[in-house]
Design a protein around this nucleic acid. Structure first.
Lengths: 210, 210, 210, 210
DNA sequence: TATGAATGAGTGTTCATTCAT
DNA sequence: CATGAATGAACACTCATTCAT
């Protein structure tokens, strides 16, 4: 029945939300399945009816969100627009997602720490690596498009610049963890966005001397 | 006796080195005091003669290195030089340290994840936060110096730009975790350094339109 | 309706067969009700409509087969025949059953281990003990018949000899577990049967010295 | 220190004894490490300082005893004696060990059940299989010796007869589990021993008809 | 009657920490 | 100070059993 499906989906969602909350508060290792179960209002056993194990649950907290991201973004990029506008769109999208990541910022650290320690095995590592690569590829594509279309300076190396931009984005996530002032993350985000845009623009207008 | 001191110091060092190695290889939670002891060539009990507990040992692995960093860098900045040179020095210093962080990159993730989960309590969090703040302050100071001295454009916001630079640096560390090509971290580092310098230079020369 | 009865009986049979298969493959403890249900093509809940619990299901796998055995054998023994012929019949019957036990040999071990741990309580233990006693009694009766009829030597102690024979049969089951050569169980069975018959015959013909 | 060694050995022994008791009373699966620890008067953790895991502990309960057996028996067989005497020695030895096996009879069932379900992997299965083979080989050798020396009838097949004898021994162990009369095991043992000897003798004296 | 989602008690195992020697 | 055996709290995961539909 549709009703059943909805209920199953709702419970699954409840578990994922609870897991996100607990993993975020305690960290992957310190979080206990017991606490996740309590938070979700189900029994421990139920967790295992929906997810294979702790690792899987942890991975799924992200993977579903991430795959959602990518589909949405892919459409954005297909549209016929100036490269700069596309880049702004990507950044806007990233920053809107950032709100989630910064809210669950401590979680991201765990995610990275975890992923960094399995490179090949877990779906976690694969997911992260793929997502990272995907984003960089998109940015690089847009930059290359801008260079080809004359929007950006010819000497701009799309690959390197894409890495730089993507690194900066990740760096902002890191920084937002350690800013002691609450909300400073959000405030500085828009400022940083402006900076990034200005930076790109300046690159594009800076005339090559050689 | 000085000899005893030296011996004590040596054993302490050996433990710290062993701890760094093991924490890096296994991650904080998965690392065991047993393995650290073995790696250091001492018994488990001895670990507790030098450090209060696992958390303390983990924290000390960084705090000593970090404080060493800062003393060295402070001298660098004091010298009378153009702001751009100073900035290059800071970056060179960072990047030389980066080699350590990237070598032990997975460790950094753990460190951040850990620190992000104690904001006020642990010396770990305090250390990280202080160090972060310190670095940003230095960069900001140098940028302000450059703006005041006319080296950089007047409209450049030193605080925001410092955050941006620092974020980028942290982002590079993150990225170097997930680059699948071995050694790509080191290769891209110098490329990224060039980019960063160029970026700053372009800012400084970009004439304000308004 | 008879049809319903037949269906119920069929389902019950299906569960018992599935249980036998799974218990044999996994062992009592490692076997799960889930797997039995799957194998039987029913849901977990249905198992509990036909059997009280896991223990009961395990017991029933044997008790029904065992009681079937006994009825059949009882008729065999009633017939007017020489004791040696009857003994051969019993042995033939045992060995034909042995094929089942050896096929499910690992199951028997579990059965014994289980039964050995409840002596008085469970129907399992009672069943085993009764069956064992029953078989020995039959063999003993036939031997006594042979002694009384002059077929076997007078000095033959039917009780002890019956135990010896029955022990040997059980021992063959045990041995067939650990024979590394596949099929060696069946091959050696007939050889052992010949030996057993020869042994008995030699007893019967061996003249008492005293 | 020798004192320390003795203490370690004593604790190891205490654990093994406790394990034997608990495994015997509850069965392998139902026995808990907790209970073994309590019985041995140590903490749960200590168990794991002496044995790798539950399986290992279970295996060691037997393996040490078994290897002791074999060394002792090998000497017995080397001595220059009539085959019949050697056979008696082997049987005496077996039956003296049997007292242990019958005391822990329920344990043996578990051992077999366990071993029967891993044939190749665990040291348990290997141990059992090797021990079984070893015993059969010894008996077979002695029988062959007797045939060669004219003590036993030429038509006696040492391999088959050895299997038969060994099966009978194992069968006695099984039977002793299910004898409702306490002590009947011991009583019947000597009777059965006589029977076995008589049986062999009758074989040896039975003249081949063909 | 059949189902299968939910339950939660139960257990093997790990490991930071202590302390007697 | 050094040792390492002992500790015991903690936790992921399983699975027999129930019960609402």
């Amino acid at each position: 029945m549709a009703e059943d499906d909805a209920q199953l989906g709702a419970k699954r969602r409840a578990i994922l939300d609870a897991a996100q909350k607990v993993f975020d508060a305690r960290g992957y290792e310190a979080a206990t399945m017991e606490e996740v179960a309590e938070e979700a209002g189900v029994s421990k056993g139920t967790l295992y009816n929906y997810f294979q194990n702790k690792e899987d649950l942890f991975a799924k907290v992200f993977s579903e969100r991430l795959s959602g991201d990518q589909a949405e973004l892919e459409r954005l990029i297909e549209e016929p627009l100036p490269a700069l506008d596309k880049l702004c769109r990507i950044m806007d999208h990233v920053f809107s997602q950032l709100e989630f990541y910064i809210g669950s910022g401590r979680l991201i650290m765990d995610l990275w720490a975890h992923a960094a320690r399995q490179r090949k095995e877990g779906e976690l590592a694969v997911n992260i690596a793929q997502t990272n690569t995907q984003w960089r590829k998109w940015i690089e594509a847009v930059l290359a498009e801008g260079v080809a279309g004359g929007e950006f300076a010819r000497r701009l190396n799309p690959s390197v610049m894409a890495s730089l931009i993507w690194s900066t984005i990740n760096g902002i996530i890191v920084e937002s963890m350690f800013d002691t002032e609450a909300g400073s993350g959000h405030r500085s985000l828009s400022a940083l966005k402006q900076g990034l845009i200005a930076e790109l623009t300046s690159w594009s207008t800076a005339e090559p001397a050689d």
